[in-house]
Structures are given as structure tokens and as C-alpha cells.
């Protein structure tokens, strides 16, 4: 789905810039360096502090017009051969709909803080992608409006795609997430006002009947 119709090219696709031109341009303007491990395409290493500034420039500059952020990819470099710097990385593959160029922004993420700025205000599509990356890798996206788990269930502890997660460790879910927050957001977007919250029926627990999920809104809470 294309959020901004104005970015859709009206005529034939323009050739745009080559990888070398893009690397030179962004290297001079933001001091981005090219990642040598990407031998075929263009991957530029970017600091977390300047990420929002770079992405805003890439999206809004008419000669670049990167209108599409394809994905948010987490990488865990734990026990990666020859890796010396930060443990995690987040990759942002970007594409221009008007020109034939694309690039990947790479942000190295420190294990201690494990935080990168969220890009939700620039691209609506990254909202779920950032939720997924947080769910699987535990990388916090500062400024995300609703950073909750996307793929794993809400009683899951840990982040399964981290290399130190024992991949066969299974975690049972006792009851489903009633998704009240999503329902309320949808109702608000349709113009409804939430006046009162009642009891939430979540069914019977499977293994731990006493377990109450923390995501449940309290009955009689603030409207």
C-alpha cells in the first residue's frame, strides 16, 4: 500500500543515481561510510543519532525521493566470525519509486542500551516492522507509539532470534491476548469515544489458571 500518492511516479521511471554517486553524496553530507561486507549493493553505515535526519533527507529530497522503506531487519552478530564492534545491527532497505535507485541504511546497536530511534513518523509501514524487530531481537525503537510483541504471544519471555536464546525452548500461552488496545485504537479512528471498560472475557487458561496477563486492562480503569 502506498501511503503518499504524490510519490508515485507519473511517467517512466527515471534512472536516478548510481551506487557510487549515492555513496559520495551521502558520505559528503552526513559522513556515512560504505559497508565493505555488502559487495553487490549499497549499504551505508549510519549512527543512531543521525538516523532520523538522514532518513528525512532521503525521503524529502526531490533528487533522491526514497518513498518506500521496505523492511526493518534485525541482525545479531553474537559469535559472528571476525565481528568486533557492537552486537546488534538494524538494517533499513529503502527504495525510490520515482528513480531506479535503492540503498540500505545500517545502524549498529549497542547491547547495553539496545535502542534506536523509531521511524514511525516518516513511514507508517515501519510500525509493524519495528514491533517485529523488537519482538524477535529486543531492540527498542524509541518513540514508537505501540511497541508490543507482534509475532510471539504476550506471555513470551525473551527474544527468540537472539543467538543466545535456546531455540528449542518452548513457552506455553495460557490465554489469548484479547487485543483490547487494538480494538480501542480502531474505534477511536472511526470517531468513537470510549466511556467505560467492562470485564474482559478471555476464556479458560490452559496451564496456569492463576496467570493474569499484564496486557489486560483493569476493569474500571481510567476511560
Amino acid at each position: 500500500m502506498i501511503a503518499h500518492r504524490t510519490h508515485v511516479p507519473q511517467g517512466p521511471i527515471q534512472p536516478g543515481l548510481t551506487n557510487e554517486q549515492l555513496a559520495t553524496l551521502l558520505g559528503e553530507r552526513f559522513a556515512l561510510t560504505r559497508d565493505a561486507s555488502d559487495r553487490w549493493d549499497l549499504t551505508l553505515v549510519c549512527k543512531a543519532e543521525q538516523l532520523r535526519e538522514v532518513v528525512k533527507y532521503l525521503r524529502d529530497e526531490p533528487t533522491l525521493s526514497f518513498a518506500m522503506l521496505l523492511d526493518v531487519v534485525g541482525v545479531d552478530y553474537l559469535a559472528y566470525p571476525g565481528h568486533r564492534s557492537e552486537r546488534f545491527a538494524v538494517l533499513y532497505p529503502m527504495k525510490s519509486l520515482a528513480f531506479r535507485h535503492r540503498l540500505v541504511l545500517k545502524v549498529m546497536v549497542d547491547e547495553e542500551a539496545c535502542v534506536v530511534p523509531s521511524l514511525c513518523e516518516f513511514y507508517k509501514s515501519v510500525e509493524w516492522a519495528e514491533r517485529e524487530a523488537w519482538d524477535q531481537y529486543g531492540i527498542v525503537f524509541a518513540g514508537h507509539p505501540n511497541l508490543k510483541r507482534l509475532l510471539n504471544h504476550h506471555e513470551f519471555v525473551g527474544h527468540p532470534l537472539r543467538k543466545d536464546y535456546p531455540c528449542q525452548k518452548r513457552q506455553k500461552l495460557s490465554m489469548n491476548d484479547p487485543m483490547i488496545d487494538q480494538l480501542e485504537a480502531r474505534l477511536r479512528s472511526l470517531g468513537y469515544t470510549i466511556l467505560e471498560r467492562g470485564e474482559t472475557s478471555v476464556g479458560q487458561a490452559i496451564t496456569r489458571p492463576s496467570a493474569v496477563p499484564s496486557a489486560l486492562p483493569k476493569a474500571g480503569g481510567k476511560p
Partner: peptide, 10 residues
Amino acid sequence: TYKQAPVLRR
């Protein structure tokens, strides 16, 4: 999946 398991049980 474990996420579906409560649905199946129900």
C-alpha cells in the same frame, strides 16, 4: 503454534 493453542483448546 503456541499462540494458537488456547484457540484450539477452546
